[in-house]
């Protein structure tokens, strides 16, 4: 059964009581339908991770142009002295 509050906490999502009720109701419908997967015989089938049959597409190990520090920080909600600014993490 989908434990909405526990999973939301793991995913760091604060839910209101109304949202918890709405999402729980829908999650129940989804979970019931997921049970139908058991009807397919997948014995010996390899999971399909990507639809492309390409393997290890790696570029040459040559430095490419990257975004500058300023560009990377330009979208930060808060920054200080060239770093991302976060609240105190240790009490």
């Amino acid at each position: 059964m989908v434990n909405m509050i526990e999973l939301a906490t793991i995913e760091k999502i604060n839910l209101t009581a109304e949202e918890t009720a709405q999402l729980s109701a829908y999650a129940g419908i989804l979970e019931d339908s997921f049970a139908e997967l058991a009807t397919a015989d997948t014995e010996g089938v390899t999971p399909l991770v990507t639809v492309l049959d390409l393997k290890n597409v790696l570029r040459d190990d040559i430095a490419a142009k990257m975004l500058s520090r300023e560009e990377l920080l330009s979208n930060a909600p808060e920054q200080y002295d060239g770093y991302f600014q976060v609240p105190k993490t240790l009490e």
Partner: peptide
Amino acid sequence: KAMKIRRLIR
């Protein structure tokens, strides 16, 4: 299981 069925579908 869903990834395996995805292969069967493909």
